[in-house]
Amino acid sequence: MIIAVASGKGGTGKTTVSASLAQVWGAPVVAVDLDVEEPNLHLFLRPEITSTSRAWLEVPRVVEGACTACGACSELCQFKAISLLGDVLLTFPEMCHGCGGCLAVCPSGALTPDQRELGEILWGRAEGVGFLSGRLRVGEAMSPPLMRQVRQALAGLLAGGGRDAIIDAPPGVSCPAVNAVMDADVILLVTEPTPFGLHDLGLAREAFSPLGKPLAVVINRAGLGDDRVREFCRREGLPILAEIPFARQAAEAYARGQVLACASDDYRGLFAKLAQDLRHLAARGPASERMAAHA
């Protein structure tokens, strides 16, 4: 079972919820940081890193003297990563999406695979919780290629069965966010009861519901702002699985780098119940199948 913790708006508490769920999960679990641009889960779980590996993207390199300037590669490339200037072939590796098209289409062996560093993948353990994280190289523009490799690594960890995963997703609702929740059985949206939280929750619902997975909501900093997030969830049929009260105690635990579920028995209970509800939701299966069953 894979739970993805996502949100439209940043800073609503995805990492707080992910770290807490991992701590109280009560069954073998891997905590996965897929916010590769700004990974933070390790700051709270403080895993012992057991292995790291550099992640690379295949990009083309020109073989001197072999190019016939036919232009097939630059014509196919959709990302302006390879271009023919007169009869000189130039590559722009930082623009490359690694599709392999140029290498496949070149008739004269003038291109050979090279690599661009995307960042690194880290494996570790924290008090019985497995840990996996991607970390984008500063200056690298594309996060989805690294995220794909972390997801492959996760598939490897889960292959034997008997383990669940909790994914801490990047903020937003565009391509990287969708990439992070794609493999999940349940998408848990963390929001706050403010106009920004409400607006971005609406975007998240719109972005993720076409995936046909069960969506659920956690309201963080409940008591701040107004009641419109609750009304929205009621109207849209989004179950609110937990409300984390707005409290200085929570903010201070966060500032100390403490996992919220470990800050008090009340918090531990709140997250244990959330974990149980998520299991039930995942067991009910995808929304699309439920709809088919009703039809």
């Binding site: 940043g10 800073g11 990492t15 641009e37 700004e38 933070n40 700051l43 709270f44 984008l136 500063v138 200056g139 690298e140 523009a141 594309m142 996060s143 990047p170 903020p171 937003g172 990287p176 966060y254 500032a255 780098g257």
Partner: peptide, 28 residues
């Protein structure tokens, strides 16, 4: 600007006169 350090942020930085970075006193 956008959160993160990826494509949209890089695109918003090129040639600007000043980036004002808003931080908060937490580990993250």
């Amino acid at each position: 600007g956008a959160p993160g350090i990826g494509c949209p942020v890089i695109s918003s930085l090129s040639g600007v006169d000043l980036a004002v970075v808003v931080s908060e006193p937490t580990p993250s």
